Computed example of a mutant assay.
Amino acid sequence: MTRSISGNISKLYLIKIAKWFMLTMPIIVLFYQENGLSMQDVLTLKGIYSVAVVALEIPSGYIADVWGRKKSLILGSILGCLGFVVYSFSSGFSGFLIAELILGIGSSFISGSDSAMLYDSLLKMGKEKEYLKQESRVMSVGNFAEALAGIAGGSLALISLRTPFIFQSFIAFIAIPASILLVDPNQNSIKLKVGFNHILSIVKFSLWDNAKLRWNIVLSSVIGCATLTLAWFIQPYLRDLDMEVSTIGVIWTLLNLTVGITALSAHKVEGFFGKKGTSIFIVIGVSAGFILTGWFNSLIGVGVLFFFYFVRGIATPVLKNYINQITESEMRATVLSVRNFIIRICFAIIGPFLGWYTDHFNLSSALMLAGGIFFVLGGISVFFMIKVEK
């Protein structure tokens, strides 16, 4: 059984690759603009995607705890493939909206379930202390995949901006057999009692009863929202610098390589600075990344983007590990889904607002405004996290 469970690690790598080998990401905003969408339309579309994720984020995490993480990952993988099939044959806001809703629902069944599957697989093997290292490696593999996809996607875009979406459907399909071959480490355990009231009790426990868990979730969510927000500004930012699509693809590749390489050493950085120092560094680094990128609307700003992605490589696995360390296995996927829920809620509010601000003012000031917002939210989160942990 242990040997079978150990095979989950490589299969989770495949699921991460299928999810992150995004041929469409280097050109997706350009694709939207080619089809007549403004920046407000783009971020509204992504805001709706976030709402779709939010609608099922916590219930899907709870379903994963009750129904099984494997089944949840299979369903999410199938919907992830279907969403890109719909994208391949759609044009205009309404068609993209249908695709985004399918992808959003699919994503909600994967998010939380993958990390919970990883942690519990290691727990079953008696190697739970290796979670941060393994989570960093899984994240690194995903970012290396996204980096290579940047080059491939940029090349396919030379045929047409729609071509990457067609090929993406085949990439997404890889996750389906990988998820089917997983072994659920908790398949013989007693399942939680299914019920909406029990979902609410877990949410209440995570965000109200347990102050330590609450502020760890909030900090991780704020930083997660920040990294998600900046990702949608990179393409228009580089286009404002008169860069070609192929050049944008190369920079996208290098940014994700930066995250991948940094993530491999995230556990060492956290071990050196400790929880308090690492958390403060992450908040300052992310906020400064926004502000300086907006201030230097030039190649210097591109250099700042690399610093931001360096911080991102440390932040994601470290902050997720902090949550896992203080969460019980039987509610792990639900709690991680609470984190993702808050990320999507924040982005659904902040994203369209910053898109509107960009259309009516300019991109640089929108980035600096975003930096200020995330500095305040992140600073409050770190302050209370340190306070309750004393």
Rank of each mutant, 00 (worst) to 15 (best):
M125K: 13
R137S: 15
F272V: 09
F375S: 11
F89P: 00
G224A: 03
Q33M: 09
I326N: 10
K129R: 06
E146W: 00
V86W: 02
F170Q: 02
S365G: 13
I190C: 02
Y357Q: 06
I234S: 00
G351H: 02
I199A: 02
I9K: 11
G355F: 15
G372H: 08
L354G: 15
A348T: 07
Y32D: 03
F96K: 11
A99V: 08
L254E: 00
I27H: 01
A55L: 15
E130R: 09
C225P: 09
C346S: 09
R332S: 04
K212I: 10
Q40C: 07
R332V: 14
T2H: 15
S88V: 05
S38N: 11
S279P: 08
P185G: 01
V382I: 11
E389F: 13
F347G: 12
G371P: 07
R162K: 05
I48P: 12
A55I: 14
V318M: 12
G83D: 03
S115P: 01
F296M: 12
L73V: 08
I386W: 13
F167K: 01
T163K: 02
G112N: 09
Y62E: 01
L37T: 04
D65T: 07
A149F: 00
I159N: 04
M368L: 13
Y13Q: 08
S189W: 01
S107W: 14
L148W: 00
T334K: 02
A64K: 06
I110M: 10
M117A: 09
Q33T: 07
Y13K: 14
R344N: 14
I300C: 03
K16Y: 08
S136D: 11
L73E: 06
T278M: 12
W215N: 08
V269R: 03
S91H: 13
W208T: 11
L192P: 09
I234R: 00
K71A: 04
N210E: 10
V335A: 03
F173A: 06
L181I: 05
M368V: 10
W208V: 14
V283E: 13
V259M: 03
L299C: 03
E128G: 12
S111W: 14
K46A: 10
S179Y: 10
V250L: 06
E330Q: 13
M139K: 06
S140G: 06
Y32P: 03
L97T: 09
Q325W: 02
